[in-house]
Design a protein around this nucleic acid. Structure first.
Lengths: 117, 117
DNA sequence: TCAGTTGTAATAGTGAAACTAGAACAATAG
DNA sequence: CTATTGTTCTAGTTTCACTATTACAACTGA
């Protein structure tokens, strides 16, 4: 399964689902035009409520990464593939951070502080 | 004040405090050996509860970024300054991401997925 | 030694948010 | 026309952030 979830990770389940999709699209495992699993189907597979899945899908729609249509499902947009070019840069940065002994929390905090500016 | 907080930002207050400290240490605004404001003092200044501040300080301690001692306060460690060397790389990555139309959520999702591996 | 400062811990209450549950409905596909 | 799939609504439970208060223990500095 492309999408996995860890209930006790501290991160909200709908956020983990959305993050899985963002990352999968960035690395090309999900391509524009492809469909995500139907919400009911994914909820069943992960043994969670359909509303939790829908919340994730709606967040992704708000970010412009998927189109949602009744009867059709959640379709990956072109925008979702834009992450691909920066994947290598991300991997390099993470490697450097780990090398310096910089934790994930610090790295994420730095990104959050730099992004809006 | 070095540490600011936005109650309606969606991010937990204790997380915003911890993030402020991580970032401040990375850019050298907080140096190893320096003391953070006393928990009661900061709680007063930000008009929040002392426990909320302590939660942030304890998270930072768990990450090894500060030492906590009664009577002495929260002292920044050497580890907290390790973020400095990667600051430029972070800025470059963020600039590239913005340029490609990649949102903050996607960037953070990618980092989270790449980090543990 | 002693008083003041500071983090630690325990208990408890409030409010918001995540998650679940079930049902009915509307748009699309085939 | 039927099955599929997202949308909406109501509602209940649970978890967690946050607040509040009190007492305590370790350390500092005079």
């Amino acid at each position: 399964m492309l999408i996995r979830v860890d209930p006790g990770s501290g991160v909200a389940i709908y956020d983990q689902i959305a993050a899985s999709v963002r990352a999968a699209a960035a690395r090309g495992a999900l391509r524009p035009g492809e469909r995500l699993p139907a919400a009911r189907e994914l909820a069943d597979a992960l043994d969670i409520n359909i509303h939790t899945v829908l919340r994730a899908y709606q967040d992704l729609r708000d970010e412009g990464l998927v189109d949602l249509r009744r009867g059709r499902g959640a379709v990956v947009t072109e925008a979702a593939s834009r992450g691909a070019p920066i994947l290598e840069a991300v991997r390099a940065l993470v490697a450097e951070a780990r090398n310096e002994g910089v934790g994930a929390q610090t790295l994420i905090s730095l990104i959050r502080e730099e992004y809006p500016a």
